[in-house]
Nucleic acid binder design. Structure first.
Length: 108
DNA sequence: AGGTTGACAAAGG
DNA sequence: GCCTTTGCCAACC
């Protein structure tokens, strides 16, 4: 099912550059919804839609898919873009997509 | 109309 | 690090 909420989420996900990752929470804050909605939206991506869904991972830098449900596939797509894993984790400091550059404002 | 459900996050033990 | 709350909120029974 396609909704306005999914649409807003997908629109942001499409902007994640190759070789970078974003977290569910990061997308959620941009769209102003709960982080779980982001996971829900990605789970329901229509087949055939062009979307770099694999660039979205959880706040700990880990692929948030079950081992038996696409985990390796997502990891492979990320590896192909040059993202490296260290014990199943991505270094967010290094690979996270940063949109706003703030010199003085930081969020809690 | 109301309870359940997540590809989550943050904080605590 | 791992596991367990607790908060979250649109979608889906």
């Amino acid at each position: 099912m396609i909704t306005a909420t999914y649409d807003r989420i997908w629109r942001i996900v499409r902007r994640i550059p190759r070789g970078r990752v974003a977290t569910y929470g990061q997308i959620a804050r941009m769209v102003r919804v709960g982080p779980r909605q982001v996971g829900y939206a990605l789970h329901n991506v229509p087949h055939g839609m062009e979307l770099p869904w694999h660039r979205v991972i959880n706040s700990q830098g880990r692929v948030s898919l079950p081992r038996a449900g696409g985990y390796e596939r997502q990891k492979a797509l990320l590896l192909k873009e040059g993202i490296r894993f260290n014990r199943e984790k991505v270094d967010l400091q290094r690979y996270q997509w940063r949109t706003r550059v703030s010199s003085s404002s930081a969020r809690p």
